[in-house]
Every structure is written in C-alpha cells, then in structure tokens.
Design a protein around this nucleic acid. Structure first.
Lengths: 333, 333
DNA sequence: CTGAAAGCGCTTACAG
DNA sequence: CTGAAAGCGCTTACAG
C-alpha cells in the first residue's frame, strides 16, 4: 500500500468519468477525439471536464502509449539567426506531424555535462536531432538503441545525417574572388572548443583550394572569436592600410562589422572593397551582402522529415545521408 | 487485453530483476541509490543492468512518483548574452536541487501558439519560470493550479515575481547625464509585438523624469528595431551632424554599434561622445561601456530558488515579490 | 457506441 | 536487507 505521503489529489480521468456517469474508457475517447462517441455522451464528458477543471496527466499517457510525441533538438548554442531559422523549420515539420520539440542548447560546459548525466530528457522523447556537435560520444549508452537520431551539420556512420558541403561553398567563394585584381583577406573563426563546429575550417579550405587552382592565394587570414568586438578591430586595422581589397568571411555574421567599418570610413563597398560572407543569414539579405547561401531552412526541414519517417518506420535503408549544396548569391557587396 | 500492436519490447526493470534473480523492488532500490541494499545484491543488479543494456523509463517513474524533476523555462526569445547568463543562473540552482530545465523560447508566433495548444510540455513539469512575457494569458486554464510559477521581469498579482526596477535604472542614467554640457540623445526600442518586453519604455521614462527634474531634456529619441543594422545607420546620422553629444541606449546591445561608429569616425568616445548603456552585458564589460548594471545572474538565481522553495512547500506567504535595484557602472565611455 | 479490465514500467509501504 | 503487491493515470482491444 504505497503512496501514503499525503499528496494533493489531482483530478483524474476517473473523477471525470464518475461525475459524467460514464466509464473511463469513454472519457479517454472524448479526450482523444475518437469519433465513435455519441455526441450527447461527448457533451456530458466535456461538461464534466470543464466543471472539475480536469487536466490530463501526460506521463500516464506516455507510459500507456509508449510515445511521448516529443523530439529532442540538441544544438551547440542558441545565439543568432541561424538557429532561429533552423528551429523554425524543424518545428514546422514536427507540429504538422503532431510532435513538439524539446530544445537543448549546449550553451555552456555545464549544460554539456548535464546532458551526459541526466539523460532523462533524452530518454523521454521519441527521437533526437543533433546539430553540429559530435553525438556519438554524447549519446552512446544513454539512449535507447531504438530511438532514431538524425545528425545535422555533422557526419555520422551510426545515424542518419544531413550535411552541407561547406568545402564546396568555399570553392564557390574562391572562384568568385579569383577574378578580382586586389589583395584577398579572410576573416574566420578557429575552433577553440570540443563543442564548436568545424564548418569554418572546411569553408576556408575550399576557398584556399580554389584560389590555388586559379594561381592566386590568400594574402592574410585573420582569426577572430565569434563576436563583433574583435572583428571591428580587425576591420579598422585592415582598412587603415588597404583602401582596396576583397574579404571573405566564413560567416555573414563576421561580414557585418567589416562592412559597417568600411562604410563608416567612406570606402566604396562593392567596388573598392569586396565582401563575401557565408550562410545567407537574414542580415545578409538586409544589408545586401554577397554570400554563399546555405539552405538553412531546408536543412531543418529535411532533418525533421527524416526523423519522422524513421519513427514511423517508413525507411528501409540502414543509414541515410543528405548532402546539400550551397550556392553563390551575388548582391551589392 | 490491450497493446497487441507489436511494439519492440523494451528491457524493463522486470527483466533485470529476473536476470539478477531478485525482486523488482530491489532493482528499483539500486537504481535510486537506496543505501539499504546489500553490496553483493547491488553488484548483481548492476551487472544485470549492464548486461541487458537496461535503460529506465522516465515516464513510468514520473507517473509513479508524481514528480518530473523538470522545470519549464519560458523566454520571449533566446538571442543574446542576456539569456545565456539568466539561463545559466537558473540551471545552476536547478541542477543543485536535482532538477533540469526545459527551455521554451517563444522565438516566433508559431511557437507562442504551440504553447497555448500543446500544453503538454507545461503540464509535465514541476514548476514554471516565465521571463518577460505576460503569463496570465498563456497559462490560465492550461496548467495545474498547484504548479508553482515564478515570473521574471514581469509583474503578476497571481504568481511570485522577480523584477528589476527599470524606471529607477533610467533615473540613474538621467542623473549621470544631467551634468553633461552637450546634446542628449536616446536610442531605444519600441515594443512592436505583444510578446515583447516593456522594459525599454520603463527605462526611457525614468531617464526622462530624471532629466526633467534637473531642468534638462532629451534632444531627440531614436527608435530602432532590436538589431545593429539600423543602429549603425542612426549612429552615422547622429555623428555626421554632432561631433559632441551624450547618448543613452536602453540596452548595451544598442550601444555597441554606436560606439564602433564613433570610434571609426575617430571621435573621442568618453570625452566628446558620452555613451551609457543598460544591462551590463558581457559586451559592455569587454568594450568598457558605461552602463546601468542589471543583476542578471541574481535575477535567475532568485527566481529559481523561489520556485524550488515553492515546490517544496517551504513558503507560507501567498505571493512573493522581489524588486532588484540596478546600479550605475561608470567605465570608459 | 460503451464499460470493465488489463497493461504500460516504475516506486514504496508493508511484512517479513 | 528483500520480495510481493498495490498503485500512479492513462489507453485500448474485447465483448457487448
């Protein structure tokens, strides 16, 4: 005889059934919009629910059905427009299929540890989408082997993956820049932490490779943290010496301060100063930045679709792998 | 006889018990680190768990205990350092008390609707922290009346709240500026959406009030969206006319582009151009921006502490209300 | 269309 | 220290 510890008794489906004078099964059917319920009975139940202020217990439902209708979405961070778009795309697909997303951004070291420790969150969902970070370390042994996982922006030989050909994107930028008769600089970010993405390096490599093929080379690479403070400094340093140059930034995010400094210094951006970013973030569209467009929305959509299909067992193949191609979008910079 | 739909059978506590030759109760005790288990028995169980690859089912646990050890954290968005700090502070308290946070950022309209509709997420947690957005609309009727709620940066006459005196912060900035013998401008953001915060207006009001008391007034208010693109434009417009002025931005975030433009135009920031922000974000510390410091970390910590205490029934009062005072931090701008 | 009942996988007071 | 069993609040196949 457990549970003597006096808890506040919640209103349950049983209370509703009693009040409405029906069986619990009928209440459950009403709750689940089962059409095989007489409309009068349905109304009685609905009234009882309202009267008693009944609120269903999702845990009981999940235990009973074996499904949570929840999807865990793990991201390395959550700042910036990129994730806004990605998550919107994912949410759209999930909602359409009756799922909700459970966001788990690893915005600090502790959050990462927390994931390893209290895998409770991962265990309670029907599927997992992991962006950017290497999952095999994190998930191994913590989740049910049956739980489907889709990797985004990260290769995996264990799970499905949706990746973007960042190297190819770099090539595109390099091909575009190789015609310019000016010094070529790169402003990029160097991975400084296990959890950070390697995409910047891949983009840089492609860029370098393309230039070499065309007999050109990078005149200088500036490494900056992923923030604007430092990039402003770099931009001022560059433009105090060079009034004419081409700059490739491995993300649009870093292009912004550069363009702003150039404009403030009254340099002709798009003519004397060429800038090409990467990602095609909303800010690149607003500021009309030439960029390598990454299909962020598609990435999210494809990943979510894939996961849903896996959950429903609608995929036969062992492991699926999507490689999306970025494209050059020439705008005014 | 339900559940004929052939599901992949999970390994359960029962399998482990059988394999280890003990009762399920004992397995449960091992799982929950109950000290009253013989160390040999414990080892047998542990071996069985490993052998079978057993993974506990959190839904069953939650149904049984009536607790989820989960806290929902609702924020109006998730961009920027502010939330990083706030969430870190909250997480720290939660983890210490054995809880995990479930992040629910309302980063778009759909997400907001989703919250109203699928209240599943809210229903499954032991408590809720809501930042910025007005909760009464959202939560009314959706959550258990027993579920404790703490409002952050938002007053409530229904729930506990932790707020910052933004008006007073504006006063502080006004008092500071009133001595400067130069034109005074404000760059701020106007609430354009139900979900946006009203803190900027409160700060502006305090600022205005203080200046009036000192016989001064704002020469011009610039309203911008909460992004840097527009703020750059505004900054260039201001500095093309005024080489000497004092600018109050209702958040540090907006101070950054202003300072950068001023510096790039080689104006003397801190001497000819005075800038005071609000929040004391990390960026304000890095760029040494004078600001009105908001105790972000404390806000999160106090809110989380309060919620935990509520959950544990350690608070008698009907409604608790904390009002934190911001303070002026004079740095180099 | 509807009710009674089994079962989902745990926890825990009880009785050894 | 340990096992048997009740109970958490749902869903659903079964038999009307």
């Amino acid at each position: 005889m457990p549970r003597l510890k006096q808890k506040i008794r919640r209103i349950t489906i049983k209370d509703v059934a009693e009040f409405a004078g029906v069986g619990v099964g009928t209440v459950s059917r009403v709750l689940n919009n089962n059409p095989h319920v007489d409309s009068k009975t349905r109304q009685k139940v609905l009234d009882a629910i309202k009267k008693l202020g009944y609120i269903p217990n999702p845990h009981a439902r999940r235990l009973s059905t074996g499904e949570s209708n929840l999807i865990t979405v793990i991201t390395p961070e959550m700042k910036g427009d990129f994730y806004q778009i990605l998550l919107s795309a994912i949410d759209e697909v999930l909602i359409k299929n009756g799922y909700s997303s459970l966001l788990y951004p690893l915005y600090n070291e502790r959050k990462y540890e927390g994931l390893k420790k209290s895998s409770d969150i991962l265990l309670s969902t029907d599927g997992i989408i992991v962006d950017g970070v290497n999952v095999d370390n994190i998930l191994k042994g913590f989740i049910n082997p049956q739980t489907p996982v889709v990797c985004l922006e990260q290769d995996s030989d264990k799970y499905d993956s949706v990746i973007v050909d960042n190297y190819y994107g770099g090539i595109l930028a390099g091909d575009y820049f190789s015609d310019f008769d000016m010094d070529i600089f790169v402003v990029t970010h160097r991975k400084s932490h296990e959890l950070e993405s390697t995409v910047f390096d891949e983009r840089l490599e492609g860029f370098q490779e393309s230039l070499e093929r065309k007999g050109r080379s990078i005149d200088k690479i500036y490494y900056v943290p992923l923030d604007w403070e430092s990039t402003f400094e770099v931009a001022r340093r560059i433009f105090s010496r060079y009034k004419r140059c081409a700059i490739f930034t491995t993300t649009d995010y870093l292009a912004v301060p550069i363009i702003e400094v150039a404009r403030t210094m009254e340099l002709k951006v798009g003519k004397d100063v060429k800038v090409c970013g990467f990602d095609d973030l909303p800010i690149a569209q607003i500021l009309e930045i030439t960029t390598i467009k990454q299909p962020i929305y598609d990435m999210g959509k494809i990943a979510a679709d894939l996961l849903i299909k896996r959950i429903n067992g609608r995929i036969k193949e062992k492991i699926k792998r999507y490689v999306l191609k970025p494209e050059l979008v020439v705008r005014s910079t």
